[in-house]
Write a protein that binds this DNA or RNA. Structure first.
Length: 276
DNA sequence: CGCTTTTGACCGGCGC
DNA sequence: GCGCCGGTCAAAAGCG
């Protein structure tokens, strides 16, 4: 992922004959400089995503230490079970209910996706390649932005649900929470890729049903393409880091504002040099 | 006309 | 028991 393609498309260096003898060498120098900067930025991006993954692993480790063998959700559910049932229940039935809860938890796979969108884009539509039907919208207490509720409408038996809400901290970021697993093949790859052009997936967060717990492996099944990553097992792999970096870079290179700004900055530099 | 979206009503869980 | 809150339902409206 280099910005060379961008530079080649934005500035066709061969389009016009060079008027100044120094211009060519200046352009080459500038190109070298931009390439070096590009490399540096790429390294920075890789470093950032690496740090992010390390941090996430640490959080998971901490949670495991805090609640060995049981996540918060299971704990809360167990608490509820104790309240509902009699306190003098035998330990074996307790264990059984625990087992059941854990099974339930692994069955209900939940993942959270952060999607960067245009600030002006007020829709709560995340085109991930599946067909969704909106069945509700609600304003929640912790976030003034409404939360939209979607069901997978591709197959009537598909149990997958999705909640989409704008982030409180950054309104341009959509938070999509996927609940369950699709029991049918992916519907449209084109839609998904087009959406990735419009926005960038900032991260896939393994999202146990309650925060701060170490849940089971959670899969975001954004189709079986290269954009599909099992968040818990692949998030720290070089492939995922590369994917993140590529997504960020492709978003930048596909952004016309970024292109024009870069072109303006470079041409401005050239003008300065030629004026001198 | 059929499908999707909107939106107020309703329901169940939870805390007090 | 009551009130709050998140999630879901379903009738009405919108749209192609």
């Amino acid at each position: 992922m280099e910005f060379n393609g961008l530079l080649n498309t934005s500035l066709d260096l061969n389009a016009e004959p060079l008027r100044f003898p120094d211009e060519r060498s200046a352009l080459v120098d500038e190109l070298k400089r931009v390439n070096a900067e590009n490399k540096r930025l790429t390294e920075m991006l890789t470093e950032v995503s690496k740090n992010y993954n390390e941090l996430q692993n640490r959080i998971m480790e901490c949670n495991k230490i805090k609640n060995p063998g049981m996540d918060n959700t299971a704990a809360s559910r167990k608490r509820k079970a104790v309240i509902n049932g009699s306190a003098s229940e035998s330990s074996s039935s307790d264990e059984q209910s625990c087992k059941k809860l854990r099974e339930e938890h692994t069955k209900a796979k939940i993942s959270r996706v952060y999607i960067q969108t245009q600030a002006s884009d007020t829709s709560l539509i995340v085109k991930d390649g599946y067909q969704w039907r909106k069945y509700g919208q609600k304003v929640t207490r912790d976030n003034p932005c409404p939360r939209a509720y979607f069901k997978c409408s591709y197959a009537p038996t598909c149990p997958v649900k999705k909640k989409v809400q704008r982030s409180v901290e950054d309104r341009s970021v959509l938070v999509a929470t996927y609940d369950g697993e699709h029991n049918h093949p992916h519907t449209s790859k084109l839609e998904m890729t087009s959406d990735l052009n419009r926005s960038v997936i900032l991260g896939l967060v393994p999202c146990p049903t309650s925060l701060g717990s170490s849940g089971p492996s959670i899969t975001l099944d954004l189709t079986k393409q290269k954009t599909s990553y099992n968040s818990s097992s692949k998030v720290s792999t070089p492939e995922f880091q590369k994917f993140l970096v590529e997504q960020m870079a492709s978003t930048l290179t596909k952004d016309p504002n970024f292109k024009s700004a870069l072109a303006a900055a470079i041409s401005g530099k050239f003008l300065q040099q030629t004026e001198r």
